[in-house]
């Protein structure tokens, strides 16, 4: 499981980086969403190997429990990430309204012409 998780995290980070470096607003937005998910998965994997461990609810199982702290951390990170993503959506929409474009390269080319 550890190797697969590591590969998945790597793939998510790679895709997110590629998307953020694109010119279209929508791809950039998806890139940032993917990036925060990759980071959350990384934190989750810090709970250790899940095999042979029960859910972190006391009294439900005799097995040793999974470390619950990373899950609490992710919960916080998801909430914050959600807020920031909402802000990013609004900012990109305002940029679209002001500049009449959804391409980053067009937006900054105008500025050099001024």
């Amino acid at each position: 499981m550890q190797i697969e998780t590591a590969l998945l995290i790597g793939a998510l980070f790679a895709c997110a980086t590629w998307l953020i470096l694109q010119r279209s607003f929508v791809r950039i937005l998806f890139g940032f969403i993917l990036l925060s998910n990759a980071a959350n998965l990384l934190v989750l994997s810090m709970s250790g190997r899940p095999e042979g461990r029960g859910a972190p609810v006391v009294g439900e199982t005799e097995m040793p429990l999974v470390d619950p702290l990373p899950q609490a951390l992710i919960l916080t990170a998801i909430v914050i990430g959600f807020g920031v993503t909402a802000y990013l959506v609004v900012l990109l929409y305002r940029l679209f309204l002001d500049q009449n474009t959804t391409s980053v390269s067009e937006m900054y080319r105008e500025e050099e012409g001024e």
Binding site: L42, V43, L73
Partner: peptide, 28 residues
């Protein structure tokens, strides 16, 4: 002006993501 806000937001979003990763790795 608002065009200049986008690089500020983008770099800080990337910074925050790396921060969560660092916190996670420190916990590990």
């Amino acid at each position: 002006d608002i065009k200049q806000a986008y690089p500020y937001l983008a770099i800080n979003l990337v910074g925050s993501t790396l921060f969560i990763c660092a916190a996670g790795l420190a916990y590990g």
